[in-house]
């Protein structure tokens, strides 16, 4: 099994394509960080952050004075004001104007990780068919299941590698820009009970990474299933990327129906439980975990059945 994973990694990392993806990842982190720094309100950097916070608080209070404000906007603005008060009272500066702002911003790049991992996963299996190499791969003393699992593991490792690159490059680069100032700054946020709490910045960052990682795993598993069923990289990559972007739309359109909470896409974004605003009333992290596990098992079962049972012809 170990040597099979070594093989998959060799096939992955000895391709220029893979290194282009890794390089692009680094480049986009650098680019976004520089843009973030460049467009930063410079007043937030020094001790003037209080004035900026007070300004924002005033703006939000004005908005709240509007009697026609709808329920959602009202609660959001009230939360913001409470957080801003907390910053002022406890003399904790917000992330704006520190290294953490850009670092948290680049956490959104996990979608790029999903994209790259889906491309690699879609091609990993289907590429063996289109290249004809599957015929030499499957006539070895290694069961088809083992080969499938080794490919799957090497894909997950690639995703983790991208995540580590994202984390390290973004911490190091933004740290250097801001000379690692405020490195121990806590994150002030509203928890699911509506209380204002302080959280460790790095721990929260990794929580976001991992919650996004769940959706990466689901899309990779889906790409793998399509790859094994249709044996076409284009189909696997195309469908998965389409699902990646259309999924949110689908779940939004169907939000009115109660059964829509069983749709894969409604459960993919686990950060909905971090912010305390689930897709539908009554959905919990456990509920989503169960639904996602069910899809995960289904996808893998299909991949496995199709890959191990079907003839390799032509």
């Amino acid at each position: 099994m170990g040597s099979l994973i070594l093989n998959e990694n060799m096939k992955l990392y000895r391709r220029p394509r893979t290194w282009a993806m890794l390089g692009f990842m680094v480049a986009i982190v650098l680019f976004l960080s520089i843009m973030d720094w460049y467009h930063n309100d410079k007043r937030t950097e020094g001790d003037e952050w209080r004035n900026v916070v007070i300004e924002e608080k005033q703006q939000r209070s004005e908005i709240l004075n509007d009697p026609k404000l709808n329920e959602e906007n009202r609660s959001y603005n009230e939360q913001r004001v409470a957080i801003l008060d907390y910053h002022l009272e406890h003399d904790i500066r917000p992330e704006e104007g520190t290294m953490w702002d850009a670092i948290n911003g680049t956490a959104g790049l996990t979608i790029l990780i999903t994209l790259f991992t889906v491309i690699v996963a879609g091609d990993s299996l289907a590429g063996e068919f289109s290249g004809g190499t599957i015929k030499l791969l499957l006539i070895r003393p290694a069961s088809r299941l083992k080969i499938l699992v080794s490919k799957y593991i090497s894909m997950l490792m690639f995703g983790i590698l991208l995540l580590l690159i994202l984390f390290i490059v973004s911490i190091l680069f933004n740290g250097l820009i801001y000379r690692f100032g405020n490195i121990d700054l806590p994150l002030v946020m509203v928890n699911t009970e509506g209380e204002i709490v302080e959280r460790n910045m790095v721990a929260t960052l990794w929580k976001t990474y991992l919650f996004n990682g769940v959706s990466t795993i689901m899309f990779v598993t889906m790409a793998f299933m399509i790859s094994s069923a249709f044996r076409s990289s284009a189909m696997a990559i195309g469908f998965s990327i389409f699902a990646l972007f259309a999924g949110t739309i689908v779940s939004e359109v169907l939000q009115a129906y109660e059964w829509s909470k069983f749709i894969l896409f409604s459960n993919l974004d686990l950060t909905q439980y971090l912010t305390g605003r689930p897709y539908q009333e009554g959905m919990t992290l456990t509920f989503s975990a169960v639904v996602l596990s069910a899809y995960f098992i289904l996808f893998n079962l299909v991949s496995w059945l199709v890959f191990t049972k079907r003839d390799v012809a032509a």
Binding site: L4, N7, M10, R14, G131, G132, T133, L136, R140
Partner: peptide, 18 residues
Amino acid sequence: EMYKYLSGYHNLVHYARM
């Protein structure tokens, strides 16, 4: 049909590992 993006040697290493 071999892995075209690998060298002949690495193709053999690939099958040898299996």
